[in-house]
């Protein structure tokens, strides 16, 4: 855990659609330290996936900047330097669509290796075997399979192997376990953690599942409708959630045991729908669903400020900042 490897400064991304301007990401500032896992938690419309996509260069920001190792990389990946593309990788949510269904696993990974200049056939096969081994998939059984014959967990492992093939430093994981069942999810998370330690990777882990986020992230940022509403170390967030939305997320997680039920913070009943990102509510975006809404919440947007003077735990809520 050392210096900043990635900094996101007041990042905004708006999309023009037939229905209007979608403000997917509306001004977020984050930093990620080398070797850590930053969890981005939110539901649909929160902008968490778009943030990940921006980091990887799928789009260029509408405004704001992304700084990687001190260099500004706020443009699409085709305009970035080649070695940079290899250093920042991504694993998408749905492995069935992120892997070419009619290609063999070997060719899927081989095209990545070719991009980093490895041409020798033996070298390629060797590396692919090692990569498949490192994600617990025996190469003899998987090299010449096609994605359509494989299950979700195996596919995701292959997607991870593919991401690892270019020796990356930072991997964006866009809801990598949301399409998997619990046992497979546990397997993949274990795999990710092991690989992270072995290869000294930095992760941005995007998810809607707070419980999973807790177990893999060092720090968590909670997003709602394009903005960060709370950010803290994992432990701190769970002991001491401040924002009503964070508490609502907690309350919605179904739990198994009485003791888990007890440690859940004050029950905040989930009400209302997530508003549209085209015309977000004025003032605090969460006010339409907040049980503690006041007049000031409709008037002014709250600013991220430290909780009890602790600068590593910040919250954007008028109730807290008074």
């Amino acid at each position: 855990m050392g210096n900043n490897i990635l900094m996101i400064l007041d990042l905004k991304k708006y999309f023009k659609t037939n229905y209007g301007l979608v403000r997917a990401v509306d001004g977020i500032t984050l930093s990620v330290n080398e070797g850590e896992t930053l969890g981005l938690v939110g539901e649909s419309g929160s902008g968490k996936s778009t943030t990940g996509h921006l980091v990887v260069g799928m789009y260029s920001p509408t405004s704001g900047s992304i700084i990687y190792k001190g260099k500004d990389i706020s443009f699409t990946s085709d305009k970035r330097p080649k070695d940079l593309r290899n250093e920042i990788q991504i694993v998408f949510q749905d492995p069935a669509s992120s892997l070419n269904p009619s290609k063999y696993v070997k060719d899927i990974i081989a095209s990545q290796l070719r991009l980093i200049g490895i041409k020798d056939r033996w070298e390629i096969e060797n590396r692919i075997s090692n990569l498949l081994d490192s994600v617990d998939l025996p190469p003899e059984s998987y090299m010449y399979r096609k994605p359509r014959d494989l299950g979700g967990g195996e596919l995701q492992a292959i997607a991870i192997a593919r991401a690892l093939s270019t020796n990356p430093k930072l991997i964006v994981l866009d809801e990598p376990t949301s399409a998997l069942d619990v046992i497979t999810q546990a397997k993949i998370v274990k795999l990710l953690k092991r690989v992270q330690e072995q290869m000294k990777l930095t992760y941005i882990f995007i998810t809607h599942d707070l419980a999973v986020a807790k177990h893999i992230s060092d720090r968590i940022a909670v997003m709602y409708l394009g903005k960060v509403v709370e950010m803290a170390d994992s432990e701190e967030l769970f002991k001491n959630p401040q924002h009503p939305y964070t508490m609502m997320l907690f309350s919605s997680i179904p739990v198994l045991s009485e003791e888990e039920r007890k440690i859940r913070p004050k029950k905040v009943r989930s009400i209302g729908e997530i508003p549209s990102a085209i015309s977000p509510p004025p003032g605090c975006r969460f006010h339409t669903r907040c049980p503690f809404v006041n007049e000031i919440c409709i008037d002014r947007e709250p600013v991220l400020s430290p909780v009890n003077g602790n600068s590593s735990h910040i919250v954007a809520c008028h109730l807290i900042s008074e």
Binding site: G151, E154, I183, A186, K214, H215, S257, E260, I263
Partner: peptide
């Protein structure tokens, strides 16, 4: 038992008793 252990919990460590093998 593996199923129950794999469910991410809010407290304590996540055992993640991942099963090997496939269906």
């Amino acid at each position: 038992r593996a199923l129950v252990a794999s469910a991410p919990k809010l407290i304590g460590k996540w055992e993640a008793e991942a099963l090997f093998g496939r269906v």
